[in-house]
């Protein structure tokens, strides 16, 4: 089973990496493609047990699909938050408007990758930064003002949880 797992994770990473190679390379003659194959094989052999510990081919596809759905929303959120922080920073009475504080809460996401995605999303959204995250989902978040903090955990957590099927 272990060998099986390794094999499939090898194949998955190989395919993904080959895609990247093609994008990087932009050359499709035999020579470069074969070079790419070799390179991808080497890298996948090297990292297959690291990056994709338990491969589920269909799961990964679904995950990615969900993920791509999540991204536009995230970007929109980030943009909104950006304008908010921007207005904070550029406002003459900035010192009155900001109110940095740390808030702590526990996320219901259990998947490690999910937690990381969630934490990074929080950080990416201006106004909030994940200070610490434990393996059990305890987050401490530094927020620059009350408004930024208000949205947490909120919708973002829902969406991330949905990606990772929880």
């Amino acid at each position: 089973m272990k060998v099986q797992q390794r094999k499939s994770s090898f194949v998955i990473s190989f395919l993904i990496l080959l895609l990247f190679w093609v994008v990087f390379s932009g050359r499709f003659d035999l020579f470069h493609i074969s070079l790419g194959m070799v390179s991808c094989a080497i890298v996948s052999w090297f990292v297959s047990d690291l990056s994709i510990p338990n491969p589920r081919p269909m799961g990964i596809l679904r995950l990615w699909y969900n993920f791509f759905l999540y991204i536009p929303w995230l970007i929109w959120q980030i943009l909104l938050a950006n304008f908010h922080v921007m207005s904070l920073v550029l406002s003459p009475n900035m010192m009155e408007r900001i109110d940095p504080h740390i808030l702590r809460f526990r996320s219901r996401i259990r998947d490690e990758l999910g937690l990381v995605t969630f934490a990074n999303s929080i950080t990416l959204t201006p106004g909030t930064i994940t200070v610490h995250i434990s393996a059990y989902g305890d987050l401490s978040v530094h927020a620059i003002d009350k408004d930024s903090a208000a949205a947490l955990p909120g919708e973002m957590e829902e969406r991330v949880a949905r990606i990772f099927g929880e």
Partner: peptide, 17 residues
């Protein structure tokens, strides 16, 4: 962990190209 393979494949691309 996520980035490692991409960095590596990028590096190999840099070598090859």
């Amino acid at each position: 962990r996520l980035l490692m393979p991409f960095i590596q494949i990028f590096a190999l691309y840099v070598v090859a190209h």
